[in-house]
Simulated assay, not measured.
Amino acid sequence: MNRIAHILSWVLSPILIPTYAVFAALWITPLAMLPADIRWNVVIVTALVTCVLPAFAIMLLYWMKIISDPGLNNRTERLAPYVLTILCYCACAWYLYSIHSPHWMWMFMVAGACTAVVSCIINTWWKISAHAAAMAGFTAMLFRIAADHIAIVPIWPYIAASIFLCGALCTSRMLLDRHTFWQVTAGSANGFLMVYLLTM
């Protein structure tokens, strides 16, 4: 069970969720009418900015012994990675805005940055779950797509799968003793509300 929990924690890492979200947005909304090479370019740039760059920076901090765990399980070592993540989300939002993506799409990244700011502030005294916040934010994006009636495929199976994965991820974080029930609940509320409200 712990092995599954570890796999879920890595596969649904906060630095991967933005790429999943952009991929979903480009394949289940009218944006799917764009040429495939354009869509893949957007996914790749998003992955580089919000995944590869933060991952490299975290490993660099680890190699320099500024942080003791690349998984950032020590609450007191999260400030620098949080700040970097916020900057990366902002950079990706600017990129999506510059290529004239829909308002809700680039605002998803702004909402991600705002979620990280809230998490960073709370993290100074309490270890709120970034994993839960990211996955709940992804779920909120799907709900927003459904609410705005812009899905070109049946959206509810995707929403159901996302809710299931969010629950499984939160359970995994508790099984691994990374967070308590209230920490994953607070993280989920932070991510969901921020994305759903800011992408209106």
Rank of each mutant, 00 (worst) to 15 (best):
S9D: 06
W10L: 12
W10E: 14
V11D: 09
L12P: 02
L12H: 01
I15L: 15
L16S: 07
I17K: 03
I17H: 09
P18R: 09
P18V: 09
T19P: 08
F23P: 00
A24V: 12
A24Y: 04
A24W: 01
A25M: 13
W27R: 05
W27A: 06
I28N: 07
P30N: 09
P30Q: 02
P30I: 05
L34W: 04
P35K: 01
W40V: 14
V45Q: 08
V45H: 00
L48D: 07
L48R: 02
V49P: 01
T50Y: 06
C51T: 13
V52I: 14
F56Y: 08
F56N: 03
M59V: 12
L61F: 13
Y62N: 11
W63Q: 10
M64N: 09
I67L: 00
I67K: 04
S68P: 03
P70L: 12
P70F: 12
L72C: 08
L72N: 11
L72E: 11
N73W: 01
T76F: 11
L79Q: 13
A80F: 15
P81Q: 05
P81W: 00
P81Y: 09
Y82T: 03
Y82F: 14
T85Q: 06
I86N: 05
L87M: 14
C88L: 00
C90Y: 06
C92L: 02
C92W: 00
A93L: 09
Y97T: 01
S98I: 00
I99L: 10
S101K: 07
P102E: 13
H103T: 12
W104R: 01
M105Y: 01
W106Q: 02
M109A: 11
V110A: 07
A111L: 05
G112Q: 10
C114G: 01
C114W: 08
T115P: 07
S119K: 01
C120M: 14
I122H: 08
T124I: 08
W126R: 02
I128Y: 05
S129R: 09
A130V: 15
H131W: 11
A133M: 08
M135V: 11
M135E: 02
F138M: 10
M141P: 04
L142Y: 12
F143W: 13
R144T: 03
I145L: 10
A146W: 11
H149T: 00
I152F: 02
V153F: 05
V153G: 05
I155W: 08
A160T: 15
A161V: 13
A161E: 04
A161H: 01
A161Q: 05
F164N: 02
F164M: 13
C166M: 11
A168E: 12
A168S: 13
L169V: 11
C170S: 08
R173D: 03
L175H: 08
L175G: 00
D177I: 06
R178A: 15
T180V: 11
F181K: 14
S188K: 00
G191Q: 10
G191V: 06
F192R: 04
F192E: 06
V195W: 09
V195H: 08
Y196A: 03
Y196N: 03
L197S: 11
L197T: 12
L197D: 01
L198T: 01
T199W: 10
T199Q: 12
